[in-house]
């Protein structure tokens, strides 16, 4: 059984992001990049799945040499093999999905994990697109998972509750916080990662289906306004909530 996990290398959510001079991309200078937080659940679930059903795990990442840092982390956590689909291009969701689907096919992986979304562009689409391109079943935003033989039972997070879905392999699972507690890389893992080779491949050319016209920061948050400090301010507060902000 081959288990694949697709990993993205994204700006740390604690980083201060600013738009670059071209108005079409972010300025990456001084920004720390980390494993996409949702992908950490994907890595953990891939490892847990391997521990239960056996097989081999492979991490697949699309990007440039900088992605190796995140790939190494996955290897140090215990993933067996790694593929870097090396490019400096910025691809949109469908292009990324096509490139990844090709590699998943080459790897012959029957269980594929993705984070439910990447915290950089936040489209939350690549996992499902991959499933469609591969003809695999797909369950998204998964918070509970059981795989028995060919059978897959997944719990999804939905508004106000949980949905239980049953399907079969091959399957693409996109992972949500709550599915598991990602392990720390152990010292043994870090030393082992040093010896593992990242298989670098050049992905076939792909043209984007969408074009980024411009990027801008959201408007700065307005400072709060104090309209009073005791009960006499309540009528004015109600008026403002009704007429100005229109929330009641």
């Amino acid at each position: 059984m081959k288990i694949a996990v697709c990993l993205n290398h994204v700006p740390d959510t604690a980083s201060k992001i600013s738009v670059g001079q071209d108005n079409q991309s972010i300025d990456t200078s001084g920004v720390t990049f980390v494993v996409n937080p949702y992908d950490e659940f994907a890595v953990e679930e891939a490892l847990k799945t391997k521990e239960k059903v056996g097989g081999d795990t492979v991490v697949i990442s699309l990007g440039n040499d900088n992605n190796k840092e995140s790939i190494k982390k996955a290897l140090a956590m215990g993933v067996d093999n790694a593929v870097l689909l090396k490019t400096n291009e910025i691809y949109d969701s469908l292009s990324v999905a096509k490139i990844l689907a090709n590699e998943i096919k080459t790897q012959n992986a029957e269980i594929v994990f993705f984070g439910k979304q990447s915290v950089d562009y936040d489209n939350g689409a690549v996992g499902q697109m991959c499933a469609e391109l591969l003809g695999y079943n797909s369950v998204s935003v998964v918070v509970g998972l059981e795989i028995n033989g060919n059978k897959v039972r997944a719990e999804r997070e939905i508004e106000g509750g949980r949905e239980i879905v049953e399907t079969e392999l091959p399957v693409v699972i996109t992972t949500q916080k709550g599915l598991n507690e990602p392990r720390y890389a152990s010292l043994k893992g870090i030393m082992a990662a040093k010896k593992k080779i990242i298989d670098e491949k050049i992905p076939e050319n792909c043209s984007n289906y969408t074009e980024t016209i411009s990027m801008k920061k959201p408007p700065a948050k307005q400072p709060g306004r104090i309209i009073g400090t005791d009960a006499t301010a309540v009528p004015e507060l109600i008026r403002l909530l009704k007429e100005e902000v229109k929330v009641i």
């Binding site: 982390k73 140090a76 720390y184 890389a185 010292l187 870090i190 030393m191 990662a193 040093k194």
Partner: peptide, 15 residues
């Protein structure tokens, strides 16, 4: 080295 940086990052997360 890369391993030393990985060690630091792991311990920092743990702490």
């Amino acid at each position: 080295t890369e391993e030393q940086n990985m060690l630091r990052s792991m311990v920092r997360d743990f702490v």
